[in-house]
């Protein structure tokens, strides 16, 4: 699971209010190289919850992101490279995603998060 998806996942259990972001408990993190595409990154940055990304990357052992994205991205290749690496190249292979409110764990196996709910949670 890449952080671009983590940034879109929230806990869907009925009645839960504080459902995002899910806390990452890593067991195995791998890095898969992805082509660098600045236009894609500039488009995505508006949709990304920055704090969730920073904390997610940190919990996966990559503390390089600044607390706030720079105001102009155009000339800042070194920032874009870090953003690229965090968003698209870090992969949670094994581990869990934990709901901030209930502590419910969603497992991640072979890089795939399982967001299915039990019957009593729907």
């Amino acid at each position: 699971m890449r952080l671009i998806v983590h940034n879109m996942l929230s806990c869907n259990i009925r009645g839960v209010v504080n459902k995002f972001p899910l806390r990452i408990e890593p067991e195995k993190v791998i890095v898969k190289e992805v082509d660098f595409n600045p236009d894609f990154l500039k488009h995505m940055i508006a949709k990304i919850d920055w704090k969730a990304l920073v904390d997610g990357a940190r919990s996966m052992g990559y503390p390089e992101l600044p607390d706030h994205p720079p105001t102009t991205l155009e000339s800042d290749e070194s920032f874009l490279r870090k953003f690229h690496h965090s968003l698209l190249e870090l992969n949670l292979e094994e581990g869990s995603l934990v709901c901030p409110e209930t502590g419910r764990k969603f497992s991640v196996n072979k890089g795939i998060p399982n967001m299915l709910l039990h019957e009593d949670e729907v």
Partner: peptide
């Protein structure tokens, strides 16, 4: 799904979900 993507040298983010559980709010 993941294996088929890999065999073709492409990638997508795959989630085990009922329709789009967990994704619907932010997406």
């Amino acid at each position: 799904t993941k294996e088929t993507l890999e065999a073709h040298g492409v990638d997508a983010d795959v989630v085990c979900a009922d329709i789009a559980t967990g994704l619907d709010k932010r997406l």
